[in-house]
Amino acid sequence: MTELHRPLQEPATRAWVRATTPARVFTGRAGTSYPTAALLALRADHAAARDAVTAPLDLDDPELDELSARFSFVTARTRAGTRAQYLRRPDLGRRLDPACREDLLAHCPAGADLQIVIGDGLSATAVHAQIPHLLPLLARGCDERGWSTGRPIVVHQCRVGVMNDVGELLDPAVVVLLIGERPGLATAESLSAYLAYRPRPGHTEADRNLLSNIHREGVPPEQAALRILALAQAMRAAGRSGVAIKEPAALES
Rank of each mutant, 00 (worst) to 15 (best):
P90L: 11
D91M: 05
N164C: 08
D165F: 13
T27W: 01
A244V: 15
V175P: 00
Q130T: 04
P221I: 04
P172W: 10
A196F: 06
A37I: 00
E189A: 15
L87Q: 07
G141I: 08
Y86P: 03
Q9Y: 13
E144R: 10
E144M: 02
R18A: 06
G150V: 10
L226F: 09
A44Q: 15
P220M: 10
E66K: 11
L4G: 08
M235I: 15
A110H: 11
L87T: 01
R18D: 05
S192A: 15
S68E: 14
V219A: 05
V162F: 01
I245D: 09
P98K: 03
E189G: 08
R159G: 14
S253D: 12
P22R: 13
F71T: 02
S72Y: 12
K246L: 08
F26W: 06
R14I: 07
P90T: 11
A30K: 09
T149N: 04
T54L: 14
L170C: 03
N164I: 01
E144V: 04
A76I: 04
I116T: 06
H215R: 10
L210H: 09
T20M: 15
P109H: 06
P62S: 11
D60F: 05
A99R: 14
P136C: 04
M163A: 07
R24M: 14
G239M: 02
R50S: 12
H46M: 07
A206K: 08
E63V: 07
A47F: 02
Q115T: 07
F26K: 00
Q130R: 09
W16E: 08
G31D: 09
S192L: 05
G180Y: 01
L251R: 04
R29S: 14
V127T: 02
R140Q: 11
M1P: 12
V166D: 01
P221G: 05
D171W: 03
V174C: 09
R145W: 12
E252A: 12
D207N: 09
